[in-house]
Amino acid sequence: MTTTKTDERALAELQREHGPALFHFLLGLTFGDRQRAEDLLQETLVRAWQHPEAFDGPYESMRPWLFTVARRLAIDARRSRLARPAEVSDAGLECAPAGADTTESAVAALDVREAVRALSPEHRSVLVQIYFRGLSVGETAEVLGIPAGTVKSRSHYALRLLSRNLPGYTRRPSRERTVVGASCV
Rank of each mutant, 00 (worst) to 15 (best):
R63V: 05
L29D: 10
R84S: 15
G181Y: 07
D33N: 15
H24W: 04
V180P: 13
R79W: 04
L110D: 12
G145R: 14
L144D: 06
R16Y: 13
G181Q: 07
P64I: 07
A21R: 12
A148R: 10
R81K: 06
A96L: 15
S163Q: 13
L82R: 09
A37M: 07
C184F: 12
L119N: 01
D33R: 15
L127M: 03
Q35M: 04
T44M: 12
R113A: 14
L40S: 03
Y59C: 10
A37N: 08
H51C: 04
E176R: 05
L14I: 10
V107E: 10
V128S: 06
E94N: 01
T103I: 02
G168Y: 08
A54I: 11
E176T: 06
E60L: 09
R81P: 00
L144H: 09
T103V: 07
E43P: 05
D101C: 14
R63D: 04
T140C: 06
L93Q: 05
Q50A: 14
G149T: 10
V116F: 07
Q50Y: 04
G145S: 07
E13L: 10
L82N: 05
Q42K: 13
E13S: 10
A74D: 00
A109K: 05
Q50P: 02
A108W: 03
L110S: 13
L166T: 01
R84T: 15
T102R: 14
A118T: 04
A10D: 08
G181L: 09
P121S: 00
T178Y: 05
A91T: 03
R84H: 15
L66G: 06
E43N: 13
R124T: 04
V116H: 04
D7I: 03
R81M: 13
A100G: 00
P167T: 14
A54D: 13
E13W: 10
N165T: 02
P52H: 09
T3C: 15
V179E: 06
L110Y: 09
I75V: 15
D76H: 14
P85V: 07
H123P: 00
G92C: 04
R34C: 05
R36I: 05
A48M: 09
T4G: 03
T103Q: 06
S125K: 01
F31S: 14
R72H: 11
E122N: 07
G28R: 05
T6V: 12
E87Q: 10
R84I: 08
E43L: 09
A108Y: 01
L127N: 00
T150N: 07
L127I: 00
S163T: 08
P173L: 08
F23G: 04
P147S: 10
E122Q: 11
V137K: 01
V126Q: 03
L40M: 03
R84W: 05
C184E: 06
T4F: 00
R78H: 03
D101N: 15
A48N: 03
A141H: 04
E142G: 11
L73W: 00
I130M: 10
A74E: 00
P173A: 11
V137T: 02
